[in-house]
């Protein structure tokens, strides 16, 4: 896809030789609560990985560690060959520009028109003056229109974002990530706020676009069905630990039952 200006091509790193993402012995606590303990995993470029597990298992924390929102209490996180917690602020920004994140609550700028929200994908590359000018008179409209066409809502280009339905807002968020054109796409429960019909088409979009554009996808999901049907690898998280990490075809019903069984109080186990 040469349509989007790719900054990956200009980087001296060769992405095909380093893993897209690597975590080794990562732990993280919130106060005394151990959110993640001793997580090690490796994601190759082009993989589609689903994080599954019940609420509170640590899926969101893991994603927030991956995109540099949180820094791990211990362990190492490598993204595209760079160790996140060793980077200067500026270098971290450079790596973050290579990761696009989609959130369950969209986190769009509601009072702006859709075109500006899609254009926000350029902001890592645009100089300040261009960002400011574009707010007054939208620039690079063709790229935004093209991205919206890819996610199936070309007619919403100049609509106000807060007037869109949930499904449409999530598509705007995806269009922004397309314009950002990162090497990795992270998605935190992207379909949790959508109805089944919209969920399916959103997951289809995510699968097809990442395959077509050769992106790496890491998506946390509540629905195991979608994880199995749309991803090629499943990582099961339970109480902050990896319970299994297997190709989608090899994930058995027993493994899933173990993943979702009701928590046994820690006292009675010991």
């Amino acid at each position: 896809m040469s349509f989007y200006r790719s900054s990956a091509a200009q980087s001296p790193l060769r992405y095909d030789t380093v893993p897209a993402l690597e975590l080794s012995r990562v732990s993280h606590q919130f106060g005394k609560f151990e959110a993640l303990s001793d997580i090690s995993l490796r994601v190759e470029a082009g993989e589609r990985v689903a994080l599954v597990g019940s609420s509170g298992a640590g899926k969101s924390t893991l994603l927030r560690l991956m995109n540099g929102t949180l820094m791990p209490a211990s362990g190492e996180i490598w993204v595209l060959g760079q160790r996140l917690d060793r980077l200067s602020h500026k270098r971290l920004r450079g790596v973050q520009q290579q990761m696009g994140t989609i959130y369950q609550q969209f986190h769009l700028i509601n009072s702006l028109r859709v075109v500006h929200n899609v254009n926000a994908g350029h902001l890592g590359r645009w100089p300040f003056w261009k960002a400011a000018a574009s707010l007054l008179y939208p620039l690079d409209v063709k790229i935004a229109a093209r991205a919206l066409e890819q996610v199936g809502i070309p007619e919403k280009l100049f609509a106000r974002t807060d007037q869109l339905s949930g499904g449409e807002q999530q598509r705007v968020a995806l269009a922004r990530v397309l314009v950002q054109n990162p090497a990795l796409i992270l998605a935190d429960e992207p379909i949790a706020s959508l109805d089944p019909e919209l969920s399916r088409s959103m997951m289809n979009l995510l699968r097809d676009l990442t395959t077509e554009l050769g992106k790496t996808l890491i998506v946390s999901l509540h629905s195991v069905e979608f994880a199995r049907s749309h991803c090629d690898r499943l990582i099961g998280l339970r109480q902050g630990q990896i319970l299994f990490d297997a190709p989608a075809t090899q994930v058995s019903d027993d493994m899933l039952e173990a993943l979702y069984q009701r928590d046994v109080p820690a006292r009675s186990q010991s």
Partner: peptide, 24 residues
Amino acid sequence: EPLHALIHSGVPPLSAWLYGLLPQ
């Protein structure tokens, strides 16, 4: 949240503030 979403995708702070906070 929109501001932080921009910052964590590598947008320089001033642009993120102008784009993610001020319009809201």
